[in-house]
Amino acid sequence: MTDRTRLRVFLVAAAGLAVALGVGLAGLPRFGSPASTYADVINALAVPLRRSTDAVSAVTLDFRGIDTLFEEFILFAAVAGVSILLRPLSDEIGEMPEDQAPDRRVPPPSPAVGLLGTILAPLLVVAGLETVTHGQVSPGGGFQGGVVLASALFVVYLATSYSRAERFQPGGLLEASDGAGAGGYVIVGVVGLLAGAAFLSNTVSLGQPGNLISGGTIPILNAVVAVEVAGGFVLLAKEFLDQTAVIRQDRGGRRS
């Protein structure tokens, strides 16, 4: 396809998009206009019905919990896809390179970065756990807290060298936690079935609104989601870092 043809195809598509965008935006309610009845009902019922003071968490993990189940699966599929795409190919080897110059020391990261990482990593773990466990009370939840937890390990990568962190990195555990998180969500859903209600029904004791234990299955699902998201995002970072640090072309004709 020549540039000219491609431009023509794009212009046709862009014109179609412009029309669709214009019609769509024109049909939207005015900015700041009152929320829909559905939203008002949800906001009014989140606390009395689910004892969850964060209506967003109640929507994500209870009222529309099945959507989040699929969202989890999408994330799981994406992480699995990245792992498959970035595996060592047939002409590559996936082991740590041997140190060819043992007499020359690798310069360590600067002490300032090391100190900052030492302080920041535990703080991130605490902040992540706080965000995960309080999702039903205040803004937060498994997705947000899971990413914060994962970033704690990114700080460790930054503060040491990746080759050193790679040695104690639990690769199998990360993969397992990604899968366990996705599967755990289904198990919590099946618990609803076992209790004689619908899939993902909130059948656990609901607790008091505003307390740590409130919202029934919402905090449980938050924890499950956090396990998946934290494991998945660390795994993503590991796959990309492996590309530069571990996986390289097999030059010496060694076994692949």
């Binding site: 700041g32 206009s33 939203a39 003071t53 964060d54 209506a55 505003g210």
Partner: peptide, 12 residues
């Protein structure tokens, strides 16, 4: 989703 002068849907 914004409502004029609305606050966050967090009731704690």
């Amino acid at each position: 989703g914004y409502v004029g002068h609305g606050h966050a849907p967090v009731f704690v």
